[in-house]
Design a protein around this nucleic acid. Sequence first.
DNA 1: GTAATTGCAAAAGATTTGCCCCATT
DNA 2: AATGGGGCAAATCTTTTGCAATTAC
Lengths: 132, 132
Amino acid sequence: MKKSRNTRQRAVILEILRRNESAHPTADTIYREARKVLPNISLGTVYRNLNFLREQGHVQEIHSNAEASSRFECNCPPHAHFHCTRCQSVRDIPLPDCLQNVQWDNTHSISSVNSMELHILGACSGCEPARN
Amino acid sequence: MKKSRNTRQRAVILEILRRNESAHPTADTIYREARKVLPNISLGTVYRNLNFLREQGHVQEIHSNAEASSRFECNCPPHAHFHCTRCQSVRDIPLPDCLQNVQWDNTHSISSVNSMELHILGACSGCEPARN
DNA sequence: GTAATTGCAAAAGATTTGCCCCATT
DNA sequence: AATGGGGCAAATCTTTTGCAATTAC
């Protein structure tokens, strides 16, 4: 594994991710949060660290049709994401059991599977349109 | 529904999508293909039409962690996408039966579901790394 | 001391948009 | 003739990168 250093920046970013697990923050949100502690941290550093942490497997990137920018979350057991297209929030939801056991390999010319993304797009209960 | 005109550009773009269903072309690929027929078509027009066709429900946008740019495909029955992270190809694969019947509504504070995206990331059989 | 990492700013890549002109209806 | 849509170029937005200075080890 690549040689790496424990910088304050990296620790702060990881801590923000751990503390806001359910918020699935974007790089920019993490950046603004990090500036509260390290006023000089740059957006480039945030991106570089997020990429590093992703490569190390500590962080997951979430990217769906619902939004332009990626969101990030700490590594955790496989789960799906629900995206509310009204309030733009993203929530973890359990991966249906049936998906856990699907055998993709050797089917449909798939040689090996690295990961799986399941996104459900819709509206959350708190986001009902007004009714009469 | 919004008033719209049948322009040559729109027809050409839709025809390219229909003809290359399995290629899941990007906007830029569609643009380069369209130029063979309409040498003056602009990339902006391609994007505007893809957005229009998506809003009308004729075209689906595919966007996963695997690549920076979106791919597009004609409307068709629900299916999943396999992304080969070696050759960057995207292939349609059947949506596991179990997923078709999942009831999301009224669970996990989900009020309504519009769509579902399932991406499988891995390597396809044709993309095996060299062996000794 | 050395090399990984940072801050800054510029660059890159994808997509959108303003504006003016043209073509479909 | 009215106006939706096109071409072009500039703008926007997210993410990456080059470089010189800094800092963890």
